[in-house]
């Protein structure tokens, strides 16, 4: 555990708190993509199957349970909560997320480090996480004025990915035989997807006006 990894995990946690806060406090999920949230739920389930048979640390296990719980809570609110579900902008959330799932599965079957059931599912979760933000980014473009909490949620998610890259650089330079090419390439692609959003987020923040993605 290093400071970049810890900061990355805490930023990830904070992003989920911000999103849940927005949904619970405003009783609205306007501007939030249910497809992205469902993809994250799939990502966490397929990646954290190892909760059942491998133990790394209490910290890891607790975080896994928290991430799983928050992902399913968010999906529950957006799809089933009697008030919140009516605020979901279905017509703005049209990205074909099934293609992302299928593409990630094909890629995981072709490129993985060990051809076993759990390893392929874990690899699938890495590939799917890399692209899971796409429905949300497309939806932001269509939403027009983006509220602060939604904008901050996406910003924190991007920060979390950036901090993980710093964590890998740190680990690679301090640990012997630390090497995880699949995770690195996917993570760099994932972070790059936020570049456009970051540009407009910082620009609007600097000019002190409401976030709009052209």
């Amino acid at each position: 555990m290093n400071v970049f990894r810890l900061a990355g995990d805490l930023t990830h946690l904070l992003s989920l708190v911000v999103l849940l806060l927005k949904i619970v406090a405003t009783k609205s999920c306007r501007g939030v993509s249910a497809k992205t949230q469902e993809l994250y739920a799939i990502v966490f389930v397929t990646r954290y199957l190892d909760l059942l048979f491998s133990f790394v640390s209490l910290y890891n296990s607790v975080m896994k349970v928290v991430f799983l719980g928050s992902a399913f809570s968010i999906v529950y609110f957006m799809r089933y909560h009697k008030v919140v579900r009516h605020t979901y902008d279905r017509e703005l959330d049209t990205f074909r997320s099934s293609f992302l799932v299928a593409g990630s599965m094909v890629l995981a079957l072709l490129i993985n480090s060990k051809y076993t059931f759990f390893e392929v599912l874990w690899t699938f979760s890495i590939y799917l996480e890399a692209v899971a933000i796409l429905p949300q980014l497309v939806m932001l473009q269509r939403t027009g004025n983006i509220d602060n909490l939604t904008g901050n949620y996406v910003f924190l998610l991007g920060m979390y990915r950036g901090l993980y890259i710093l964590n890998w650089i740190y680990r690679y330079s301090t640990e012997r035989r630390y090497w995880q090419m699949i995770v690195w390439v996917s993570g760099i692609i994932q972070t790059a997807l936020y570049a456009d959003f970051f540009y407009y987020y910082l620009k609007c923040w600097n000019e002190n006006r409401t976030l709009v993605i052209p």
């Binding site: 890891n60 035989r177 699949i182």
Partner: peptide, 10 residues
Amino acid sequence: DEQGRKHDEL
């Protein structure tokens, strides 16, 4: 790739 296979990140 042993280190990577331990999946110690989240």
